[in-house]
Structures are given as structure tokens and as C-alpha cells.
Design a protein around this nucleic acid. Structure first.
Lengths: 201, 201
DNA sequence: AAATAGTCCAACTAAATGGTTGAACTATTT
DNA sequence: AAATAGTTCAACCATTTAGTTGGACTATTT
């Protein structure tokens, strides 16, 4: 006999799977119910309607990524260590949940207001310690002139893009799944290296 | 009195707009007809069904980007010039059509087979001259060890990611539309610089 | 044990949506 | 000018889909 929490959890898990696979518009309530192995009206009992269910899933997904990255940036590590940790985090998270980045980016673009409200509701600012680290490194001429925003944008871009464009990468470079993951693994070292040292010798 | 070609073109333009705005599942045939200012059954007369119409639009969109980039990579320019040109191309193309990258990446992930067929049908290989340039630069120790694939992946990532994640960038860094485009413009110089020289001084 | 609150579902409804039809209208060919 | 081919659309149809309802069944409270 499943308890309330178990059923709710089953619905949530199923919804996450289906929404990530098919997107908000593509997902069918019946499909989610089937995936959860329960009757469709249970979805409405626990989550009222499709929007509410989606919101819950989306916010949970976003929370899996952004606060973790900000956590790393707020830590006591050196700038270089932080970059390494962020790169590792993205790559490990992708292994566990390959559809997550694609899902968040796409739905964010299609529910802009909902996304802004969500961002506003959590207080997301670039950690001060990170900003200071970049600014100090620039001032002391350890680094070329760059803003913390652009710095972070570079790291995130180099990590996420190959994950978002998985199909294109595999098709263009003719990679099997295995080769694709090797390709990604190479980047764990390549990215911090590129960020700080570039390619020129 | 509109000719056949004009009506077909109006449908195509409208479909492009609506599919890019709402995605395949989100787009409504009626919405496309309204956008084109014609009756819904015209869509079926010219494009048979939703899938055909979508396919046409999607392939046209993909053709706007990839062959152009490959064209630059196949040219006679130096490696550094090619990077600059690719970066410029992406940023200019985005100004003209800000929804295009997002559209192609998302739908590519949701119609993988269709996308593979499409890639296969055009013969898309990395241009030999580009591959040789990277390999020679590595061999002659002008560049750190890197494969042409990873090299290209870096450039494309640094360009496209901030475009795909526009909402996130604007929300997180608190940028107006104008500030966002300045942020992108900064990257035209920043990216080639990063690719070759990194940040270390 | 009776009453109450919580959990579950089969069957239903209303609305939306992709697609079809048949006829009217226009341009072109003979 | 008559016939033919091409173009347009209002009305319709079949299916899908989110959401509702009423009742059964279970656990908890009194």
C-alpha cells in the first residue's frame, strides 16, 4: 500500500522523466500517469494541473544546477580550483542526467516570465568572493582584463554547449556514444587549461 | 493577386516565425495560417501536413548556419583569421535572427533521426584544410596539443552558449536588452583572444 | 464500530487540433 | 469561348487532450 508521499514522489519522478524527454508541450498527462503506473486523475489530485506539475519539476531541475555552481564559486578555493570544480561538477551532473541541461535551457526560453520570477525568488547573485578574486587577479596582472561575468560565461559555455548539442556533435564528428563520452572527458582537463593558458605556446 | 510562389513563401515565412517562437509541438497550424494571413487549408495544399512544413523550415534554418561555418573553415585564411570570421559570423547571424540557435538546437534534440538523415544527406565533413592547419600548428609547437574537433567545439561553444541561454544571462547578470547585446559584442574580441592566448599573463 | 478524512480510479466532458471535403473562383490552354 | 488546371476557403470530421465527477476503498479518529 503506497503512502501519500510515495505516490506523490512517483508522480514527480515520472513527470520529470516525461517532461525532460518531451518538453512541456510535448508531454502528455496520460504519458506521465502511465510512467508512474497510476491513474491520470491522481496527477490532478496531487498537482492540480499540468502547469503546477511542470513548475515543480522545472524548479527542481534548475535547483540541481545553479545553486551548486554558485556554491563552488562562493567557497574558499583559489580561482583555478574553482574552475576545475565547476567543470567537474557539470561533467559529473551530465553523466547522471544527460537531458537536464537541454531541458532547463529550452523551457527557460519558452517560459521567460516564469523563469524570471523563479530566479528572483531565490536570491541568485554572483558570489562576492568570486567577483573579488577575478578583479584582484586582473588588477595584480595575473590575468588579462576580463569581467567576472564574462569569465563565468566562458567556463559555463565550454562545459554546457557540447552537452546541449550532443546530437550535432555525434553526427558531425561521427562519434559513437562511447566516443562521445570520451570526447567530453577530454574536456575536463582541456577547459581549465584553455581558460587560463589558451592554446598558444 | 498573389501567385503560387508568393503564397507558398508567405506560408514558409509564417511557419518559420511560429515554429521558432513555439517549437514543433507548441506551434498550431491555425497560428501559422493567421500569421500568413491565409486560410488554414492552404497550409495543407502547399505542404501536405505539419511534419512536412516543419521539416522544410528546420532544414532551411540548419542550412543558414552550418554550411556557412564550414565554408569559412574551408577557406584559405589563417587559423586565427578563421576563428575571427566564425565568431563574427555567429554574432552577426544572431543579430538578424535571435531565435535561430535555440530553435535548431532544441528541435535537433527532439527529432534525432530526422536530424541524422539531414546531416547525412548533405555531406558535412570538417574541411581538410582546417584539420591540417590545426594539426600542423600542433606539430610545429605553435599550439598546445588539441584535436581539430575540440578546437572547433571550443569556438562554437563560446559563441553560441550565451545566445542559447539569453534569458539566464540577462536574469543572472541583471542586463537590459541593450546591455545584453553589449555583453555579446564584448565577446567578439574576447573569444579569439581566449582561444589562442587564454587569460594568464 | 461509526464517522470522517484521505487516497484512488473508470468513465465522462469540453475544448482544441490536425486534417478533409466540396465548391467557388481565377488563370491558362485549346 | 469552352475546357482544363491551379488556387482559395468555409464548413466539417475524427482524434487527442486537459481536466471533472462520483463513487469505491482504506486508514484514522472519535
Amino acid at each position: 500500500m503506497p503512502t501519500e508521499k510515495e505516490t506523490e514522489q512517483k508522480i514527480f519522478d515520472a513527470a520529470q522523466k516525461v517532461f525532460q524527454r518531451s518538453g512541456f508541450k510535448g508531454a502528455r498527462m496520460q504519458e506521465i500517469a502511465d510512467e508512474a503506473g497510476i491513474n491520470k486523475s491522481m496527477l490532478h489530485y496531487y498537482y492540480r494541473n499540468k502547469d503546477t506539475l511542470f513548475s515543480t519539476v522545472f524548479q527542481s531541475a534548475a535547483k540541481k544546477i545553479m545553486p551548486r555552481v554558485f556554491g563552488i564559486l562562493a567557497s574558499e578555493s583559489s580561482l583555478r580550483e574553482k574552475v576545475v570544480q565547476v567543470v567537474e561538477f557539470y561533467h559529473n551532473a551530465f553523466r547522471e542526467n544527460p537531458e537536464l541541461p537541454s531541458f532547463v535551457i529550452y523551457e527557460m526560453n519558452h517560459h521567460p516570465q516564469q523563469f524570471k520570477d523563479f530566479i528572483g525568488s531565490m536570491e541568485m547573485h554572483l558570489p562576492e568572493t568570486f567577483i573579488e578574486q577575478v578583479e584582484e587577479a586582473v588588477e595584480s596582472e595575473e590575468l588579462r582584463t576580463i569581467t567576472p561575468d564574462q569569465f563565468l560565461m566562458n567556463v559555463v559555455s565550454l562545459c554546457m554547449m557540447p552537452m546541449l548539442a550532443r546530437n550535432m556533435v555525434q553526427a558531425l564528428f561521427h562519434l559513437t556514444d562511447e566516443e562521445y563520452f570520451s570526447f567530453l572527458d577530454e574536456r575536463r582537463q582541456l577547459i581549465p587549461n584553455l581558460i587560463f593558458n589558451g592554446l598558444a605556446l
